[in-house]
Design a binder for these strands. Sequence first.
DNA 1: CGGTACGTTGAGTCATATCAACCATAGTGG
DNA 2: CCACTATGGTTGATATGACTCAACGTACCG
Lengths: 235, 235
Amino acid sequence: MKPFTDIPCCTNCGTTFNTIFKELNPEQIDLLNYEKGCTLHKRGTVLYQEGSRVAGVYCVNNGILKLFKTGLDGKEQILRFAKKGDLVGYRSVLSEEPACSTAKVIEDAVLCFIPAKMLVQMVKENPEFAMKLMRMSCQELGTANKYILDIAQKTVRERLADILLFLKNDFGLDNDGILQITLTREELANIVGTATESVIRLLSEFKSDKLIELNGRKIKIVNEKGLERIANFYK
Amino acid sequence: MKPFTDIPCCTNCGTTFNTIFKELNPEQIDLLNYEKGCTLHKRGTVLYQEGSRVAGVYCVNNGILKLFKTGLDGKEQILRFAKKGDLVGYRSVLSEEPACSTAKVIEDAVLCFIPAKMLVQMVKENPEFAMKLMRMSCQELGTANKYILDIAQKTVRERLADILLFLKNDFGLDNDGILQITLTREELANIVGTATESVIRLLSEFKSDKLIELNGRKIKIVNEKGLERIANFYK
DNA sequence: CGGTACGTTGAGTCATATCAACCATAGTGG
DNA sequence: CCACTATGGTTGATATGACTCAACGTACCG
């Protein structure tokens, strides 16, 4: 964790990539810019551990984090990712519970840290901000509920296709049609909720079926419609 | 849906079974008591459908609801239950999205309906209430995340034991040690995320192992420690 | 150069889903 | 009052998706 020299201003982030802090009034923004810390975190850094108390929330200025729970046998279950503009750790702060997941950097990240007290103060001072935050947590709850349905009812094959499409929508493709997020096979398995070997086998099936192309960890989406058909995309 | 004659006062509910509305100040309580409607709903009633917009939230004064999503093939996945004191529909109202689940009465219920506008107004007027509501949604998010881990990593056997213990904690036992909530085998399967036949087989295994006793839909918890062992209860 | 982490493939196993038949119960209508 | 039907529960047989275990390949790194 290194202090980051070129500290981003919350106003800019709010306008360029839509953080929730754009709801704040100018005085609050000033206070926030003063109170927050901004640091660069290398890949592999753990921001907080499942079960621990968190001291505040992180706003992602750049890079990618994964949030996961750890099962009995040590196997990770990835719950979500956080990228530019996303807020992390707020669930624990607002519910006043220990963190329900571990947050780990998977692509070098510039993060702004906002102390819990500060966040709560802003909620209490600014009803619009409170509404926005509530909206965010309720949306995340909606996503989680959808996830429950999928894991409970879809096959691994369907879910993997689903996840590839989700990653495409969330992180986008580069000019060559390659997914803009790089994951290990194990991480893919930990999203889908399956064994690493199963992911490997299914990916190479998708490849023979001309749905994707593989080059190490780079995944190129070749036939999106085909993936949608497999995923039983309906909503 | 029949109008309910003996309308409960929000102050009483707040003190006797801890609704979130106990955060409100006296004027807000008065307004709420005036604005809300209270009705009796019979078993089987659907309060709102997945995908539809909801006009407000329901506060459960009595009875039990199930909230579920419906899969492609029509199979339900139960997300949670709501009983005395619980709030239902708030996710949709606060996220300004259509409902992500269907709410159905499974034990005759007395429900107070609070219009969306009213709820939002209270959030904006009362920061403490906003915090409480946010806390509630974040806690539900924590539960959902735990659910994701369980479904993804535990076996059906483990999850069924888990669910029985959960139902025991949430709804309690009567004097004979029998679960205070009555579910069909299919509903149990729709919580666990498995086939009805699997639930039946596992329940009768649990019965031969002297962990539970069965009498129609009544389930008696005989050996809680044993169930905990099966469920891999650790947190 | 050896070490470590990741990726791949094959073979065998098992938990769970699926399909099918059958029983019990209760409500319905002629 | 009795078929009739619907719903839920149970059991058995069978199929198979997915996991596990094991071996081996590959690549990067100090």
